[in-house]
Design a protein around this nucleic acid. Structure first.
Length: 898
RNA sequence: GCGGAUGUGGCGAAAUUGGUAGACGCACUAGAUUUAGGAUCUAGCGCCGAAAGGCAUGGGGGUUCGAGUCCCUCCAUCCGCACCA
């Protein structure tokens, strides 16, 4: 009767095939309410999935299946972010076309995803490297290129609607228009990574090294495409408030945008020259004892005195050769030089020296500051080092010499005695009157450098004609990636595409153009993929507006926190532009965001006694001089080493000896990233072949809350496997299907209904680990009751199905249901079955449970019972006259206070 | 340095609003079954204590009849950001 054992391999294959062939999860617009659940799509890397990757996919799948059962029309798509550096690096090494390797990897990913029983609508699959997909990425690029931001109306508008100053020459007109476009070319200092042969965005540089590969990055001026994301800074910031996102992500974005309110103040140097500084502390203006310019500041050459010329030029030169990383090393030891010139403080009319230092960044504010050493730590350090004046202008009792808090104004002429917060406004008003300054808002956010000198990315659909440009007309899209001889970047820093002159040179209406040879960054494709899922095969637009109106916004977006400021900020930006231009109906793309935690590896260690081939068990190791070695986690179970397998695993260990404790070899353990070198990679395929994917799905959820990072530990998996076997056994007796049509007892109904209630609540608040516990309790209770009644089992299968879909479908079919589970409904619960007949209350006296005494009463609605309480219980434990009050928490507790 | 998250048994962890802390699972212990191993079932399992009872949610303090939960303070770990004026 092999047929009636829980043969998970057979069952899972059967249903995976069924779902694919019948397109069970195909979705179309209909009259039902919609629910859009999405995962961050993967980059199809060559190494396939490890056990940590599917965590989010499993969670989103459970939600999808649950919402379908609740009667929602659920959109749950998947795709691949298939442009990217690794495929290109691999192509450089092997000469294999990235398209081919990417395609192979995608096939492998899809197979792996399908063995997990994920309910994706594969008809909506997208790949960002498909020309039918990037056609629309290019189209959106052109929309950005042909738009400007109208600060009065606070929306993006078509560039044709831009008001252009009258009576200017064509060239100036073009320049003016270009200065407003949301996508524009600029000569900018970029993060150039020699090793990768490309420019990186600020977000891709971490501590002066490239995010991918960790190669050094230097600043270098280059012509680049840039996205004017800064125009949207305020909206990107404001709209965060209405999103149901984790606070940590909102705060990261807030910090990244970095809004600060303050003032621009003009310090005159001489008749022609003046310096504009940005400060958030105009209230400390009387304490400004010197100015500091960034070494890149343009005015330096005008104001440097002859005496100082040599030192200044030297300093400026040295700064320009320093990388970001080297500059950061100076944080505690500031450097700088005096220009020889002085500027006039516009409020106090005091002359103060002008210095240059690289602690002032050219890219923030105006690239110049007024230094207030008494109330700013950086200025304080600089002033101390170069013996500049320190004037305290805010009174404080702090022992620190440098005080950055609030207080009363002092040493500030007639303004003494004001609070510094009041004075801030006063100063700005005076400056505005004198036209020597104004209220300003500054953002840390920089415009987004959008070009990469790579092959494997979207070509930018622009044609060049000398200094002028022309966008490729929409009908000509997509601009397809051409074949090239080599994928290596060229030595002059231009893209590999420049090698293909046939592709690069193009003639339209007799005019010769050169194509833009740079490509878009990897973020481009992922900026809008959630929209393409809605209408993936549309030829005439990126997605039909009615479909967008029906499905948007994404109700739940699950993915890793590493995209907090990159992908999530860029796609919000693009979405807002599309919203302004009338292509989408919501101003934000993702309503609710959940970050799944990373799954780390759990490494195991063995302890070799130095100079021997003898290994000592974990707790005995301190008695020896040992070295710690990683041991393959697949040779270890519950931290006990399988010695036989271990000895056979390599020649080196064939004759190994062991010092055991209690006849076993115990391994040490630690949590580290999963990696081959640490021997701690667990492959989902192995787990599936041993326990099945239903077990894997449930166990991944059972590990803990999905938001939390946690180490993978295969130790507990048997518990979930046992649960599925028990669940299967509920339906079987002596390996034969055995179910009954009898009416369920009250006790059985209670188990069922309280489970429904708990599961419904817990799925909705994404507490999937407690759901599994609840199902375990239900199955345990029902098997104790030997319940095999269809009245209970039918709904129970539905409860289990989002978590373990294969076994559920199989049992569902076996017990005679004609349609698949997807056609059924999530059962409702009835509170009256859940309630006990008799309530049992612990009686607390003065907050302490002195006794295990309990009493059966229904205190929720009966006055009479309260009398019984007073007469029978209260008098037994405390005198009625001493009682101050009786606190009754319905269904929970009675607390008598005396 | 700034910001965020976390801290509960041997381990993973529960505990919507303050209401019998440790559900559920792993590991462990004992018993049943079994030729043995495995599997399954039953019972036990925070710490101290023979028991009664006492002590326990990183440490210290507070609010409350009652605190893992709220407030203050300190400590540890992890993750971001980092000269942003």
């Amino acid at each position: 009767m092999s047929d009636s054992k829980y043969d998970f391999l057979k069952i899972e294959k059967k249903w995976q095939k069924f779902w694919l062939e019948n397109k069970t999860f195909k979705t179309e617009i209909d009259s039902k309410p919609k629910y859009y659940v999405m995962d961050m799509f993967p980059y199809p890397s060559g190494s396939g999935l490890h056990v940590g990757h599917p965590l989010g996919y499993i969670a989103s799948d459970i939600i999808s299946r649950f919402k379908r059962l609740q009667g929602f029309n659920v959109l749950h798509p998947m795709g691949f972010d298939s442009f990217g550096l690794p495929a290109e690096q691999y192509a450089i090494k092997t000469g294999k076309h990235p398209k081919d390797t990417t395609e192979e990897n995608i096939q492998r990913f899809k197979e792996q995803l399908n063995t997990l029983g994920l309910s994706f609508d594969w008809d909506r699959e997208i790949k960002t490297s498909d020309s039918e997909y990037y056609k629309w990425t290019q189209w959106i690029f052109l929309k950005l290129y042909n738009s400007f931001y109208d600060f009065d109306k606070k929306i993006a508008r078509n560039i044709n609607e831009l008001t252009i100053p009258e009576k200017i020459k064509q060239k100036e007109k073009d320049e003016f228009i270009d200065s407003k476009r949301l996508a524009y070319i600029d000569e900018v200092d970029v993060n150039w990574c020699e090793e990768l042969g490309t420019v990186l965005s600020n977000e891709e540089v971490i501590g002066g090294l490239s995010e991918r590969g960790g190669f050094p990055v230097v600043r270098k001026p280059m012509k680049q495409w840039v996205m004017r994301i800064t125009n949207y800074a305020e909206r990107l910031l404001e709209d965060l408030d209405n999103l149901d996102w984790p606070d940590s992500i909102k705060i990261s974005q807030k910090n990244w945008i970095g809004k600060s309110e303050g003032a621009e103040i003009i310090f005159n140097v001489n008749e022609k020259d003046s310096i504009k500084v940005f400060t958030t502390r105009p209230d400390t203006i009387y304490g400004a004892t010197y100015l500091v310019l960034a070494p890149e500041h343009e005015i330096i050459k005008n104001i440097t005195t002859i005496n100082q010329k040599a030192v200044v030029e030297n300093y400026v030169y040295i700064s320009s050769t320093k990388s970001e990383l080297e500059r950061q090393e100076n944080e505690k030891n500031k450097t700088g030089v005096f220009t020889g010139s002085y500027a006039l403080n516009p409020i106090s009319n005091v002359k103060i020296p002008i210095w240059i230092s690289d602690y002032v960044l050219a890219s923030y504010g105006t690239g110049a500051i007024m230094a207030v050493p008494a109330h700013d730590e950086r200025d304080f350090e600089f002033a101390k080092k170069f013996e500049l004046d320190i004037n305290q202008v805010i009174s404080h009792t702090s022992k620190e010499k440098c005080f950055t808090g609030n207080g009363k104004i002092i040493n500030s002429g007639k303004f003494d005695g004001l609070s510094n917060l009041e004075f801030k406004d006063v100063v700005i008003n005076i400056l505005e009157e004198k036209t020597l300054g104004k209220r300003t808002i500054n953002y840390k956010l920089r415009d987004w450098i959008f070009t990469r000198q790579r092959y494997w990315g979207e070509p930018i659909p622009i044609l060049h004609d000398g200094n002028r440009r022309k966008s490729v007309c929409e009908k000509q899209l997509p601009v397809k990636l051409p074949q090239v001889e080599s994928y290596l970047p060229t030595s002059d820093g231009s893209s590999p595409l420049a090698r293909n002159s046939e592709w690069t040179n193009i003639e339209i209406n007799g005019i010769k153009y050169k194509r833009e040879t740079n490509t878009m960054p990897q973020w481009a494709g992922s900026c809008w993929y959630y929209l393409r899922y809605l209408d993936p095969k549309n030829n005439s637009s990126f997605a039909d507006y009615d479909k967008i109106k029906y499905w948007m916004p994404v109700d739940l977006y699950i993915g890793g926190a590493e995209h907090a400021v990159l992908h999530l900020l860029y796609s919000r930006f693009w979405h807002k532009v599309l919203y302004d231009l009338g292509f989408v109906n919501t101003n934000e793309p993702f309503k609710k965001l959940v970050n799944q935690g990373m799954i780390l590896g759990r490494s195991n260690f063995i302890y070799r006694i130095k100079g021997t081939n003898k290994f000592v068990s974990y707790n005995l190791r301190k008695n020896y001089d040992y070295t710690r070695l990683h041991v393959d986690v697949n040779l270890v179970k519950n931290d006990k080493l399988n010695i036989k397998k271990f000895m056979n695993s390599s020649k080196e260990f064939k004759n190994a000896k062991f010092i055991l404790e209690n006849n076993e070899y115990l391994c040490g353990f630690d949590t580290e990233k999963m990696s081959k070198s640490k021997n701690n990679v667990v492959n989902p395929d192995d787990i599936i072949s041993k326990y099945g994917s239903d077990t894997l799905r449930m166990y991944e959820m059972f590990l803990g809350p999905i938001e939390q990072s946690k180490p993978w530990n295969t130790n507990g998996i048997e518990g979930v496997f046992k649960f599925l076997n028990k669940f299967w056994s509920l339906f079987h007796k002596d390996e034969k299907l055995c179910i009954s049509k009898e009416k369920a007892s009250r006790e059985e109904l209670k188990v069922l209904h309280s489970t429904i209630k708990k599961i419904k609540n817990d799925i909705e608040r994404l507490s999937l680990n407690t759901c599994i516990s609840q199902l375990m309790i239900a199955v345990n209770n029902l098997s104790k009751l030997e319940c095999n009644k269809i009245e209970i089992l039918n709904p129970l299968i539905i409860l289990v199905s989002p978590f373990a879909p294969h076994i559920s479908e199989e049992l569902w079919e076996k017990i005679g249901n004609k349609e698949t589970i997807s056609y059924s409904h999530f059962p409702d619960y009835n509170e009256s079955f859940i309630k006990e007949n008799d309530y049992e209350y612990p009686i607390m006296i003065n907050g302490k449970l002195r006794t295990k005494a309990r009493y059966s009463l229904d205190l929720n609605n009966s006055e009479i019972e309260k009398d019984i309480l007073e007469n029978e219980i209260v008098n037994k434990w405390v005198k009625k006259s001493e009682i101050k009050k009786i606190i009754i928490v319905p269904n929970k507790i009675i607390n008598i206070v005396y």
